[in-house]
Amino acid sequence: MRRIISVLMENEPGALSRVVGLFSQRGYNIESLTVAPTEDATLSRLTLTTIGDDHKIEQITKNLNKLIDVVKLVDLTEGSHIERELLLVKVRATGAQRDEVKRSVDIFRGQIVDVTSNMYTVQVSGTSEKLDAFLQALGEHTIMEVVRSGVSGIARGEKVLSV
């Protein structure tokens, strides 16, 4: 099952490499990874998505918790949560295609953020599933370049992950 694990860790050099190293060392896979400082400059927030059964996920969270730099973590997929990913995609847009692309962008509530006479750059955000669906709707032939941010997530309601 796909999981979103959200980690608060010390904003120290080397902390990120310890997390990434743990995954390769123990043979866990990382589907996506995002990391940035939080409002407290001494802390970074790292979100990673991974796939595994309950046993594997338990091992992953236990081993992450063992890292000295990790302050707290939560498996967001255990409760209701909001997940977002940002997609930037350059698509070929000439002639009739221009309107068609625009329609898809509207359906997926995206925005065209750059244009030339031959292409659009489109920005869409949402769950990874939605982004997948958007890319599929565009079709392979129109896509020139894809950039995805990886998943960020936060729990719904009043639950917060903080020190």
Binding site: Q59, N65, K66
Partner: peptide
């Protein structure tokens, strides 16, 4: 003493 040792190979 190490939670990660528990149920790693044998539940």
């Amino acid at each position: 003493v190490d939670p990660a040792s528990i149920s790693k190979t044998i539940t």
